[in-house]
Design a protein around this nucleic acid. Structure first.
Lengths: 346, 346
DNA sequence: CCTTAGCACTCTCGCTTGGAGACTGCCAAC
DNA sequence: GTTGGCAGTCTCCAAGCGAGAGTGCTAAGG
């Protein structure tokens, strides 16, 4: 690894131009095109010297001796950290996003599913969406349905019309009438609380409320169980877009990536680590820990619902990606989700 | 198209041998290998004559003049219709399937999701699973949750612990107490009925039961709506397996296919047309109407729950596929689903 | 009439060759 | 520090060639 020497103004401009040109065309960019299109005041020879320096310091690389230059991961990193100019989504894209969310169903699940679809469409890449942790949701309604004498279906309606279900076995037979009474009592008790709230308050219940306490415990477990299951689930869409990128003509590149997407757990781990403070997090090429993502970049951000409940959305694409545009569109969709979810929370 | 002349015994055996060998190796099979491995009594020249006939009648084809033969779609069709011998799944596969379903969650959705996973795994191809039509399910429980004064969340628990939800607007404000009372009444009324049942019985209700009738109507609509949404949803898994097949090294073949999978509607249409009478339906290559499936075969069958509720599961793979094995394993999984669902219906 | 041996023919595949084109690196001059 | 000039390097494409595989055809044999 080369020491991260600071770049002078002209080198920055050249790096920026290389990233822009390469992002656009996908072809290594040579000194002549740069001189002709971006740096009319300079000759191609001067540019060549600068390019050679940038290769030496690790920001650019050459596919082979007599080819133009392409950015390294480090070059992209420098670009997104210091050179990228903020973009805003075009009116067309804005309209698309607005329309897609306008008639979205009124539930968290459906909105997130729609979001995955829209995000894939507007970024022309693979979208990723994780659901918020269920234990952060406020409980809106509880219902208990008797399946067999000793078996009951717990139905939980959380804010955002998110529904969780779980079958549990009881210690002794309980009729639907008893369950309904119990549900009514539970409703008064748990409404507006989160599972985390309940977990702490459960301690305060005396040991005499045996039956009710058991149900309550199972209820919390049920949310927790769904949460841990959920963690491995990452919605995604737009694999078709990946195939259009020239960097994936070789199938073996795709193989690992699709395995990651279908398996989900590893991606979920990455998405969960996205800091909520940062606005947008970009992970470039080999900065990824998964080997399947070595030639990809992730652009991630969070959305929220009622400031309390948060999830992550993002995009996977080749490292050669219009970062500025993707960031703008990702932000747009994140905002749309948040708005839409806010409308559900009541 | 050549007239489907009936094949004499020897030609059948040769066709069968070609399919077997090609399925195994993926390499066009020549007269010498056939003579050496399958037809010791015959010389390669005789086999050549027979092969030439089979090419002439359209059962085999040659990639180029001096290559071996590979089956045409028509050859595969003849094979699966007349030559394929029934196989049964190996003990290992049986064990895998049993284990995967043993601790599956107790709900239709979860079981189908699991089924897609298992089917992809054991057939080493892409699996397809459609959910049964919601209107065939018996209703187990109804709940009404007030969101806003004039907005209510209808929650339907169907047999198999399948949950449907829908937000509807009411004509006038209704309190949660009223809703709860109404839910209790509805429960007595609708329990054990299907949405189809309700739709016919709704006529018999007098016009005086205005409010209740409205809810009931919305309830039926809600099932119907979910059903039409559902129709476009085809669960799938195992795209990673596709990439391992040599026929998909060219990405453009994949592109259309993945588009089909992500979009879903077209596949749903195909799956819905699977006749319930037939045990297993096989659609080979160009028999498919979708151009994206021109080089693929579908192997489909149905599963059922309580004889009334049915869905389709299947496999997409290259036309060069071990049909006998895939059929055996598909049947196994179908049976496993049906058993598992039967355990839920009560 | 079916089967077989023999043989010429055809086509793919892998390797090599030879420009054409693109771009660089370096050097000497400004 | 910048520039023009030029040799050098590498890819890409097309053509050519030999080896290998498998065929179709023909003529002879059962």
């Amino acid at each position: 690894m080369v020491e991260p020497s600071p770049l002078d103004e002209r080198k920055q401009q050249i790096l920026k131009a290389v990233v822009a040109a390469y992002t656009l065309t996908g072809v290594p960019v040579g000194s002549q095109v740069l001189a002709a299109k971006h740096f009319i005041a300079l000759s191609s020879a001067t540019i060549r010297n600068e390019l050679a320096d940038l290769v030496g310091t690790g920001y650019l690389q050459q596919p082979h001796t007599s080819a133009g230059r392409i950015p390294t991961d480090r070059g992209y990193r420098y670009f997104v950290d210091f050179l990228m100019e903020p973009e805003s989504a075009s009116a067309t894209v804005r309209r698309t996003v607005r329309q897609e969310f306008e008639n979205a169903p009124r539930s968290v699940d459906a909105i997130l599913e729609r979001a995955a679809m829209v995000l894939a469409q507007v970024t022309e890449n693979v979208s990723l969406v994780t659901a918020p942790e269920a234990s952060d949701f406020r409980i809106k309604h509880v219902d208990l349905v008797s399946l067999e004498p000793q078996s009951v279906l717990i139905i939980l309606v959380l804010e955002g019309n998110l529904i969780k279900q779980q079958v549990v076995r009881l210690e002794r037979a309980t009729s639907q009438e008893d369950l309904s009474r119990m549900a009514a009592m539970l409703n008064r008790k748990v409404k507006g609380q989160t599972a985390d709230d309940l977990a702490t308050r459960l301690e305060q219940l005396g040991p005499d409320r045996g039956e009710q306490r058991q149900i309550l415990q199972r209820l919390i477990d049920s949310i927790a169980a769904h949460q841990t299951n959920r963690q491995t689930v990452v919605l995604h869409d737009g694999v078709r877009n990946l195939l259009r990128h020239p960097e994936f003509v070789e199938v073996n590149r795709l193989e690992e990536l699709i395995e990651l997407l279908e398996q989900g757990a590893q991606l979920a781990a990455v998405l969960q680590q996205v800091a909520f403070e940062k606005e947008v997090e970009i992970i470039i090429g080999r900065e990824n820990t998964s080997s399947g993502l070595r030639e990809c970049s992730l652009v991630l951000t969070t959305y929220n619902m009622a400031a309390r409940v948060r999830g992550t959305i993002g995009v996977i694409g080749p490292t050669r990606m219009p970062y500025g545009q993707v960031v703008a569109r990702l932000r747009l969709v994140s905002q749309a989700i948040s708005d839409r979810l806010a409308a559900l929370a009541n």
